[in-house]
């Protein structure tokens, strides 16, 4: 694809848990300023792959390269220090804590020294306000609890935090799965913005409609293996959808549904006398 050194690259990475092969021979590369969509059905190995990238698991086999250099992370903290920020599905946000407290959780800016070292609240509040207004979220008061924000806004705070603290690679685990259409678009717009800022984004989802507009490339996973990486210009939305669900499986599903419909009609015809009183009872 491109001649640039990818920001993050996996070469033939495998991960086994005992006798279970969770990932086998996965290769993919993401350059800075690119969004790679990782698509796959449940159990395809998406979570294992993110956890390997973010340092939770260590690969059984294969190499991981960050900006051309081979890396190996002992824990998520090392990955974070190296610039790989992961926004997990459970958000890493604490609803009862204020926006500022959440934003700087674990990395509070301090002033003063020794015993009198304290959080620089003025600076922290100002930065939190700035970063939030950059993504177009009006924060009335940075000391308001995160729980008062909507799901999409919370997701954006989590991403804004990762970006602010110098992430080079941003891994987003299903950021839009629990959101409504409008909220998802807030998050998608922000992902596009992060890409424009030069981050390498890995966007995990099983919603092709969310993935397609922002993605530059797709990697499809199925049962622990990779079906390959595709540039957006080489593949259509329908093709992605087909590969992801498995075209053959969808066809057999269609057939099965037709079968259901058929038997339903037969059931209705034969069970009408009993069904009528039942319906009455339930409507009372």
């Amino acid at each position: 694809m491109s001649k640039r050194t990818p920001m993050i690259e996996m070469r033939h990475v495998s991960k086994h848990f005992g006798s279970v092969i969770a990932l086998s021979d996965i290769s993919m590369a993401v350059c800075s300023g690119e969004v790679m969509c990782l698509l796959g059905d449940n159990g395809a190995g998406k979570s294992t792959l993110i956890k390997t990238l973010s340092g939770v698991h260590r690969p059984t086999d294969g190499q991981m390269l960050l900006n051309g250099e081979e890396v190996s992370f002992k824990s998520p903290a090392y990955a974070l220090d190296a610039g790989i920020a992961t926004v997990f599905q459970d958000l890493a946000m604490i609803p009862l804590m204020s926006i500022t407290r959440n934003f700087f959780m674990g990395r509070e800016p301090t002033t003063g020294w020794g015993l009198f070292k304290r959080i620089d609240w003025k600076r922290a509040d100002r930065i939190a306000m700035q970063e939030m207004s950059k993504i177009g979220i009006d924060v009335r008061d940075p000391s308001q609890p995160v729980g008062t924000l909507s799901g999409g806004e919370r997701q954006c705070v989590a991403i804004a935090r990762a970006v602010y603290f110098g992430a080079k690679v941003l891994i987003l685990d299903e950021p839009t799965s629990a959101l409504g259409v409008k909220q998802a678009s807030v998050v998608l717009r922000y992902i596009a913005k992060a890409r424009a800022d030069g981050l390498a984004v890995i966007f995990i989802t099983h919603n092709v409609h969310h993935a397609y507009p922002v993605a530059d490339a797709f990697t499809l996973l199925k049962r622990g293996g990779s079906l390959g990486s595709f540039r957006k210009e080489d593949i259509s939305r329908e093709e992605v959808l087909n590969m992801m669900a498995g075209g053959a499986e969808l066809e057999s599903l269609d057939a099965e549904l037709a079968e259901f419909q058929h038997t339903d009609q037969e059931d209705q015809r034969s069970a009408r006398p009993e069904a009528a009183p039942q319906n009455q009872a339930s409507s009372v």
């Binding site: 974070l80 890493a92 604490i94 674990g106």
Partner: peptide, 9 residues
């Protein structure tokens, strides 16, 4: 949220 806190370092 101990888990979220740990994820944030």
């Amino acid at each position: 949220d101990a888990n979220a806190a740990r994820n944030s370092g």
